[in-house]
């Protein structure tokens, strides 16, 4: 089981990778993260551990990413239904009298 700290963090954000990243990419990302020092060494190490463990990775994959395509598919394709209206707007003087 991962520690609470691991659960709260987003390892993908720390390592700046997406969930398709393979082992080699993860290791490169860890090295980069260590060099950039945006996160502590401990945070980077936990992130790596979380991503390398299939079970915690699956949990993070579920928690950290969303998929909106299935919802969008309900509405696509969208077509323009109306004709374009000619822009012909004249200033009304009605309000001048009121002012």
């Amino acid at each position: 089981m991962a520690c609470a700290k691991g659960e709260k963090m987003n390892p993908y954000k720390i390592l700046n990778i997406d969930y398709h990243a393979d082992k080699r990419k993860i290791i490169v990302a860890v090295a980069l993260a260590m060099r950039e020092k945006n996160f502590s060494v401990q945070e980077v190490a936990i992130a790596q551990k979380e991503i390398m463990n299939p079970m915690t990775k699956a949990a993070h994959d579920f928690l950290q990413f969303i998929d909106v395509k299935p919802m969008q598919n309900q509405f696509a394709p969208i077509k323009q239904q109306q004709k374009k209206i000619v822009f012909d707007l004249n200033r009304l003087s009605n309000f001048d009298e009121n002012s």
């Binding site: 109306q82 209206i85 707007l89 009605n94």
Partner: peptide, 25 residues
Amino acid sequence: IAEKDNDFLEQKELVSSILADDVFD
């Protein structure tokens, strides 16, 4: 604008239609 003058309402409707086209574009 509180006033509901007919000319104004028509003009508002026209702008709404133009906006709708613009959104589609």
